[in-house]
Design a protein around this nucleic acid. Structure first.
Lengths: 179, 179
DNA sequence: CTAAAGTTTCAAGACTTTTTGAAATCTCAA
DNA sequence: TTGAGATTTCAAAAAGTCTTGAAACTTTAG
């Protein structure tokens, strides 16, 4: 009799879990996090660390680490069962909120760091009067363009994070040479 | 005299390149691709593979591979100089178009694969009349919810790809329990 | 056609990240 | 306070990824 014979988890669910795991990987998370979230999301009852490990063939250590990260991101919540000592976990179901949170805490930071690096670079380019070195002028222009892009991007992200509609048109129509 | 003394590439540019490299990594590309694109983007003249390798301290092999991928994604174009035998490369400057292309070719595929996995899973869950097994009903409901999400996501992506404005509200307000 | 210059490919090695398993720590009940 | 069950931590191993460098291939000039 196989490990998961009585668990009520079907092979098809594990496949979905793997697929979500791969999706999450693309979004910069670890595969096991996606697998675990999905398992919990499809489970009618909260699960304990041991069950999770058994279903997904992960060691207790790996389960603990991944659970910790999921809880940190708000993707999974602890829950208790009366009389049981150990912890149980259930999935946060509002995917929209999760995405929002990731955009806010991770992507926004990234964009801001990019803007800072651009600022430093512009400051560190040798000072010369405009027009004195064609190559320098070119680089300055391009750096400025990148800066404009990053500001646009930051604006879009902010809008998304606050649930507003966004319009990607300016992004697309931004000309390389301002005119 | 250092390697890049006469190249006209300033340290600050290399820092920007590294930062972009890290950004690209988050987007699922390889770091060297971001570095190379940036180097080319900030260069007034197209560069040859040898120069790129020298600036970024990469072997000819690594340069060739990364260039190949960049060209495949349309992020870099080959260009020729009269009289020179070897190839030169210049950056595609429309970041908006690049992003659009990635969304279309990569993310859209990903979402579609996800939908397929969901379909398979729904088909493979044991057949039982609704109401006969609470757990099965629950799983079906959640799978259906995931499917709805993925359709919403696909819609948003399509809109973005075709340059339309998008409204993330339905995403956020999607209730777990349909009523 | 040959040779030289340039480019691509790919197996081996270097490096990075993830996973494991065991020990340490924590927690609660008695 | 003690001890059993549960969780967390962490160093070592495994897995995975990236880079290199040499060889194969292509292209063009002579």
């Amino acid at each position: 009799m196989s490990d998961s014979a009585n668990s009520g988890v079907f092979p098809a669910e594990l496949e979905v879990a793997d697929t979500v795991g791969r999706l999450m990987e693309f979004w910069g998370f670890k595969r096991p996090m996606g697998r675990m979230w999905t398992l919990l999301y499809l489970s009618p009852e909260p699960l304990g660390a041991a069950e999770i490990g058994a279903e997904l063939k992960m060691s207790a250590g790996a389960v603990s680490m991944a659970l910790g990260e999921l809880v940190k991101w708000g993707a999974v919540k602890k829950s208790w069962r009366p009389g049981e000592r150990r912890d149980f976990y259930e999935a946060e179901t509002s995917v929209g909120k999760l995405v929002q949170r990731v955009l806010r805490e991770r992507e926004l930071t990234l964009v801001r760091e990019f803007a800072e690096a651009l600022g430093r670079a512009e400051a560190e380019l040798p000072e010369k009067a405009a027009g004195e070195s064609a190559a320098l002028d070119f680089k300055r222009e391009r750096l400025a363009h990148l800066r404009a892009l990053s500001q646009l991007g930051e604006g879009l992200l902010r809008a998304l994070v606050s649930g507003q509609a966004i319009d990607p048109t300016p992004f697309l129509s931004m000309r390389d040479r301002p005119s």
